[in-house]
């Protein structure tokens, strides 16, 4: 081997070593350690807010909104009827959950009697499609905020990545074509909502059980994978330019 290729090999080896060293094993924490405020405040009634859509899909908000109520209710919380509360919020001028995300939430206790509010952000709701390879991603960031203190009581992310590519194993150009068509069909037919429910299950499991669940207040020792969350930058809602009266 020439000197150059030896150097290349050594360099590659070192890079691989360095990168693999960066992958840390997951840290486990208990529900009680990670979300102590939930066990102190003990919220009973949760208001599920309309999702904040940060994805590239316009339909994501409507479709995703139909999947949240049930798992939260089955986790033991009183959940306000989503359809009803969404209408009431619109009537009060709250068209977007983003508008109230950074604001004091005590009004939600005053009007609804909600102890806490569940915000969900749809980070991803899309397929990455390259003819013979297709990956569907649904990623939801969820938070429970207290209506008394507006503090975050619980925060977790649920992400699902699904490989929709079809590899029939057939060779040659014909094989490629078959795979491409099958992948396209698979992608077009993909039911996002099904995967959204899986994404939900990945974060709902980390919520301390609610008052209607048999395990209420008995789950402090249950372990979960600790997630690191980025420092939140508030989503600035830009005001529409005020029209000059003269115009």
């Amino acid at each position: 081997m020439s000197q150059i290729s030896k150097m290349k090999a050594l360099l590659t080896f070192l890079v691989v070593l360095a990168v693999s060293g960066c992958v840390a094993p997951p840290t486990y924490v208990t529900k009680g350690e990670e979300f102590p405020s939930m066990y102190v405040e003990k919220p009973r009634a949760l208001l599920v807010m309309p999702p904040i859509n940060l994805s590239t899909s316009a339909e994501a908000k409507d479709y995703y909104s139909t999947t949240v109520e049930m798992p939260i209710a089955l986790h033991g919380y009183y959940t306000f009827p989503y359809q009803l509360t969404a209408d009431v919020l619109k009537q009060q001028g709250v068209y977007d959950s983003e508008l109230v995300y950074d604001m004091p939430l005590n009004k939600f206790y005053d009007y609804f009697g909600a102890d806490a509010v569940l915000f969900t952000k749809i980070n991803h709701w899309d397929t990455s499609y390259t003819v013979v390879a297709s990956t569907l991603t649904v990623s939801i960031d969820a938070e429970i905020k207290s209506t008394k203190t507006s503090e975050v009581l619980w925060h977790y992310n649920g992400t699902v990545v699904v490989d929709l590519s079809v590899n029939s194993g057939a060779g040659g150009i014909a094989g490629l074509l078959v795979n491409a068509i099958a992948t396209a069909i698979n992608t077009a037919a993909a039911d996002y909502t099904t995967y959204a429910k899986v994404a939900n299950s990945r974060f709902v499991g980390s919520i301390p059980y609610g008052p209607y669940h048999p395990m209420y207040l008995k789950d402090k020792e249950i372990k979960l994978i600790q997630q690191k969350h980025e420092e939140k930058t508030s989503h600035k809602v830009s005001k529409p330019p005020t029209k000059n009266a003269a115009e």
Binding site: E69, M70, A73, Y77, Y78, T79, F80, P81, Y82, Q83, L84, D87, Y212
Partner: peptide, 13 residues
């Protein structure tokens, strides 16, 4: 079993 949360309310609405 208990009727799930919000079902009666949705119907009322």
């Amino acid at each position: 079993v208990r009727v799930p949360p919000g079902v009666y309310a949705n119907l009322g609405y």
